[in-house]
């Protein structure tokens, strides 16, 4: 069992079918109360029933994710690259950042609502703060795991600091950059959704909370499915990127 890639694919498909079937059947036969978990078909039905509402709220969530992604992941990776390139900066900044990492950022959300209001501003601010430091730390850790030989070679051939970052450090750490984006992106999606659930006037998280308040479980799960789809789309994009990078890693 599970030897060839084909067998593994079959097993994966079987597992997926099992999970989806359980989701459909367990609530249907009363094993799980429908208020806790409505069946899959009910959730999809709700998705269809409230489609106009979901579609109206989806853009806000996507825009918030996109903007936070650019700021948190772009900024985290860029700053991480700069810090990693200098031993002195690493020694100075890393202890502070690691402590920052330990702060449960969600306690800041009420403050951010006061600062940035109930609209997109507070969602972007929270998701950015939530994802920035982990992205940065993953980037630094990735760069630190690189062999110093390539950088030393580049230095021997006259590369200045910027050239070393641009021509050696960044391309050499692309695989770990993808790991940083995977983590950062997931945290951005979590951050936006959580912020919308805690206090907002639009977005998928807002809808999920509203349906929950009305005890409309299928509506809640419809929203959850949409959030999962966003997460999956992010993962698919990263896989694509990973495959393009992979071809140089065979050595």
């Amino acid at each position: 069992m599970l030897r060839t890639p084909r067998q593994i694919r079959w097993a994966q498909a079987a597992l997926a079918v099992f999970v989806l079937a359980s989701w459909e059947l367990l609530p249907r036969f009363g094993v799980i109360p429908r208020l806790f978990v409505p069946s899959l078909s009910e959730a999809i039905g709700a998705l269809y029933e409230y489609r106009a509402e979901y579609l109206a709220h989806l853009p806000a969530t996507l825009v918030e994710i996109l903007v936070s992604y650019v700021i948190a992941c772009g900024g985290g990776v860029t700053l991480g690259m700069l810090i990693a390139s200098s031993p002195r900066a690493r020694r100075m900044a890393l202890p502070v950042l690691r402590s920052a990492y330990a702060v449960p950022m969600v306690v800041l959300y009420p403050v951010m609502m006061v600062w940035f209001g109930l609209g997109m501003g507070s969602k972007v601010a929270f998701a950015t703060v939530f994802a920035f430091v982990p992205t940065l730390l993953t980037t630094v850790a990735g760069v630190a795991s690189l062999s110093p030989h390539l950088l030393e070679t580049a230095r021997a051939f006259g590369a200045n600091r910027w050239q070393r970052i641009l021509y050696v450090q960044v391309p050499a750490s692309l695989p770990t950059l993808i790991a940083a984006l995977r983590l950062g992106g997931a945290l951005v999606i979590v951050g936006v959704t959580v912020a919308e659930m805690l206090g907002a006037v639009e977005g998928l998280g807002f809808l999920i909370t509203r349906h929950r308040t009305l005890l409309n479980s299928p509506g809640v799960y419809g929203g959850i499915i949409l959030v999962l789809l966003i997460t999956s789309a992010h993962e698919v994009l990263l896989r694509r990127l990973e495959q393009r990078v992979q071809k140089f890693r065979e050595s």
């Binding site: 030989h149 390539l150 070679t153 006259g158 021509y167 391309p171």
Partner: peptide, 29 residues
């Protein structure tokens, strides 16, 4: 590097560049 060229124990080539691009790397810098 224009006066002193270095060759290391490990070839230390940049794995994402072809042979000719690796040789050209100091000129790119």
């Amino acid at each position: 590097p224009q006066r002193i060229g270095m060759i290391f124990q490990e070839a230390n080539l940049l794995p994402w560049l072809t042979a000719v691009e690796n040789v050209a790397f100091p000129l790119k810098l």
